[in-house]
């Protein structure tokens, strides 16, 4: 039975101020945020948050300290050129309940611009406005189904949340294949057991939820198997081919990687879900900017635009026109 994503209903979303519990650097360009919220709607791996990468009250008229002969201080958001206006989408990297009964959310951010630079400067005790949970997540198969998680670089976070969920649901046959161009762009911490011949090993120290056997790949060979995540997938498949007929691959990463994963999984007859990334204005289904072509037999052209923020970001490979050809 092939995965069908589109039929699911949307859970309730909310806009809340979260408390920053910790902001920790995990590798050269990534920080991990731990956020605390009193209540948060049910979420699933693959769903995402829209983070306001500036002070929560920046859109409000800041205190205008007028005096009889003075000018107001220039503190309005519109006067601050380095503050991004729009929110930024981030996959939920983890979610758990803390001892104090608050919801904890994990976010992993790679610093690439003004917004993410602001995020990496957050301190414990700061406030961060977020909207979520947004979009539709991975469709998790039955416990007996072998699952392969493929994450590339900035695409790792939703799969880390997924490892927690799969473990909670009692999945035993899970293999993770995590890769990046080089070792210090992997937002993970390792034990000493990373294999460089493509043999899955429990080699991840942080996050602790990623305890399934994992293949690490780097383009430059600085850690694990030298090559791409698809090379890791081939290595996994070579070891397991007899038992993989009904395996499900769940992948997130750059478009080029997702296309390669789509091609390889199709060639090997594996079911596949892809968590895609698009530029988003809102994440709420209203700005209509994050479009992706999906197959639709009812359309004259055989396809239509779908919104990655609402119908996705997780799609079945065969729904997506531009990833499965």
């Amino acid at each position: 039975m092939r995965t069908m994503i589109a039929e699911r209903k949307r859970e309730k979303r909310c806009v809340v101020d979260a408390l920053v519990v910790a902001c920790t650097r995990v590798c050269r360009e990534h920080v991990a945020l731990e956020l605390s919220i009193r209540e948060f709607p049910a979420s699933e791996p693959g769903q995402f948050l829209e983070l306001l990468c500036r002070a929560t009250n920046a859109a409000e008229p800041a205190l205008r300290a007028w005096t009889d002969d003075g000018f107001p201080s220039l503190v309005n958001s519109e006067l601050s050129t380095q503050q991004p206006f729009l929110r930024r989408p981030f996959s939920i990297a983890d979610r758990w309940s803390a001892a104090d009964d608050t919801v904890r959310l994990g976010v992993i951010s790679r610093t690439v611009g003004a917004g993410t630079r602001w995020l990496e400067g957050l301190k414990s005790g700061d406030t961060l406005s977020l909207t979520g949970p947004l979009g539709r997540g991975f469709r998790i198969p039955s416990r007996e189904t072998p699952v392969v998680l493929i994450g590339g670089g900035v695409g790792l976070p939703p799969l880390l949340y997924l490892t927690r969920r799969l473990a909670e649901l009692g999945h035993r046959d899970v293999t993770a294949i995590f890769g990046a161009t080089t070792r210090d762009l992997l937002p993970l911490r390792f034990t000493g057991d990373v294999s460089c011949d493509g043999a899955p090993a429990a080699c991840i120290e942080w996050p602790g939820t990623a305890s399934f056997p994992t293949i690490i790949t780097t383009d430059d060979g600085t850690l694990g198997l030298r090559g791409r995540v698809t090379d890791g997938l081939s290595a996994w498949h070579a070891r397991r081919s007899a038992a993989t007929r009904n395996a499900v691959v769940m992948a997130c990463g750059p478009d080029a990687m997702l296309r390669a994963v789509a091609r390889v999984t199709r060639e090997r007859g594996l079911d596949c879900q892809l968590c895609i990334e698009r530029n988003m204005g809102c994440g709420l289904g209203t700005c209509l900017s994050c479009v992706v072509r999906v197959r639709d037999a009812a359309q004259p052209a055989g396809w239509r635009w779908a919104l990655a923020c609402s119908e996705g970001p997780v799609f079945a490979r065969d729904e997506l026109l531009d990833y499965s050809a």
Binding site: S77, T81, G281, L288, R304
Partner: peptide, 23 residues
């Protein structure tokens, strides 16, 4: 109307440039 091809929006300083195409 299906709307324009992506890229449909780009954030600019203190604003947004969009070309959705009346989808």
């Amino acid at each position: 109307r299906p709307g324009n091809d992506p890229q449909r929006v780009v954030e600019v300083r203190a604003g947004l440039l969009n070309a959705i195409g009346l989808a």
